[in-house]
């Protein structure tokens, strides 16, 4: 475990907790894409299949449980909570996210490190995580006004993946034969997707104006 990875995991944890806190306290999910949350729940469900078979460390198991419980409870809140669900804007959140799932699965069947069910599901979760933010970014473009909690949520998500890239670079130089192109490329694609959001987030922060994304 290196500082980049720990910082990445903590940032990722913070992003999920910010979102849960927002939804739980103000009982609203305005500006949040349910599609992205469903994709993230699927990412964790397919990536943590080894939760009960391979014990790596208490930290690893604990974090996996937290991510699984929080992502599924966010989906539950938006879909079923009697107050929160009313603030879900399904007319705006129209990204056909099923069109993301199939290509990622097919790609995982073709490009993977080993043709086993667990490995393919794990690779699928990597590809899906790279594109899972798209419905949320599209929704932000559409609704244009971003309340600062949602902005912070997306910012923390992007920061977590950027820190993971630093972690991979660090591990590449410090651990012999730590080479995993699939993880690195999908992680890089994911971070690049945030790049333009980061730009506008930073601009709004620098000029101290409300975050606006161009149409």
């Amino acid at each position: 475990m290196n500082i980049f990875r720990l910082a990445g995991d903590m940032t990722h944890l913070a992003s999920v907790l910010v979102l849960l806190l927002k939804i739980h306290t103000i009982k609203s999910c305005a500006g949040i894409s349910l599609k992205t949350q469903e994709l993230y729940a699927l990412v964790f469900a397919t990536r943590y299949l080894d939760l009960f078979t391979d014990y790596i460390s208490l930290y690893n198991t604990l974090m996996k449980l937290i991510f699984l419980v929080s992502s599924f409870s966010i989906v539950w809140y938006i879909r079923h909570h009697k107050i929160v669900r009313r603030s879900y804007d399904k007319d705006q959140d129209t990204f056909r996210h099923y069109f993301l799932v199939l290509p990622c699965f097919l790609l995982a069947l073709v490009i993977n490190e080993k043709f086993t069910v667990k490995e393919i599901m794990w690779t699928f979760s990597l590809y899906l995580e790279a594109v899972a933010i798209l419905p949320q970014l599209v929704l932000l473009q559409r609704t244009r006004n971003i309340d600062n909690l949602t902005g912070q949520y997306v910012f923390l998500l992007g920061a977590y993946r950027s820190l993971y890239i630093l972690n991979w670079i660090y591990r590449y130089f410090t651990e012999p034969h730590y080479v995993h192109w699939i993880t690195w490329i999908s992680g890089l694609v994911q971070t690049l997707l945030y790049a333009d959001f980061f730009y506008y987030y930073f601009q709004s922060w620098k000029n101290n104006v409300k975050l606006e994304l161009p149409a």
Binding site: D50, I56, N60, M63, F67, E113, E119, T183
Partner: peptide, 10 residues
Amino acid sequence: MPSKSLKDEL
């Protein structure tokens, strides 16, 4: 068995 080193990440 895939190398543990990779699967230890979240």
